[in-house]
Computed example of a mutant assay.
Amino acid sequence: MNIVLIGYMASGKSKIGKELGKILSYDFKDLDNVIENGENKTVREIFEDSGELYFRKKEKEYLDALLKQSSNTIIALGGGTPCYYNTMDTLIEDKSLKTVYLNVTIPVLVNRLNNETSKRPLIAHIKTDALLTEFIGKHLFERVPFYNKAEFKIDANGDVDGIVENILLRLF
């Protein structure tokens, strides 16, 4: 079984995925890292050099390949991955994996992203908390319908250990 973690940027997909992987003795793959290794560029460089649409196409290709070659793997998707092509429908139809939405409130996301805007291409241009709050709110409004298709919805506002425990209780 593969476990796919979805949620907005800074929802904890990588941190929680690594911890789940340790506990379950599963491999952990961060889709953004897989793309960066395959393209020999950072996500930011891909966005800058080729644009978001190119990135989304590559994201889909790498995810499809990863799902075909992986078993007993925790896969952390990028925040937008479930929203493009038919990715979310494909994931929920695949009975060999479980989808987990890490749901985080806007204030917690703003707090987590506050000092990371330069590292994240979609928000690199945002300079104030008010603008970041507005951006996240609009973005979540667009993305939540995709995220909510996940089989499991987990409150991910707390500490990593509590979130991981909640996921394990729901999955097994």
Rank of each mutant, 00 (worst) to 15 (best):
V4I: 15
L5D: 02
I6P: 04
Y8M: 14
M9K: 14
G12W: 01
K18M: 11
G21F: 02
S25M: 09
K29P: 02
D32C: 10
I35F: 10
E39M: 14
T42N: 04
E48N: 14
E48W: 03
D49C: 10
D49Q: 09
D49A: 11
G51Y: 06
G51I: 04
E52V: 11
E52L: 09
F55Q: 06
F55E: 02
K57V: 04
K60P: 02
Y62T: 07
S70V: 09
S70K: 08
S71W: 05
S71N: 14
T73S: 13
L77K: 11
L77S: 06
G79E: 00
G80Y: 07
P82G: 01
C83Q: 03
Y84D: 03
T87L: 05
D89A: 11
D89Y: 11
L91C: 06
L91D: 01
I92Y: 02
K95F: 05
K95G: 06
K98R: 13
V100N: 02
L102V: 01
V104I: 06
I106H: 02
P107F: 04
R112A: 12
N114V: 06
E116N: 15
T117G: 12
K119M: 06
K119W: 02
I123G: 12
K127I: 03
L132Y: 12
E134C: 11
H139P: 00
E142V: 03
E142I: 04
E142P: 07
P145Y: 04
F146S: 08
E151R: 10
K153T: 13
A156C: 07
G158M: 08
D161K: 15
G162K: 14
V164W: 04
V164A: 10
V164C: 12
E165L: 04
N166P: 02
F172K: 13
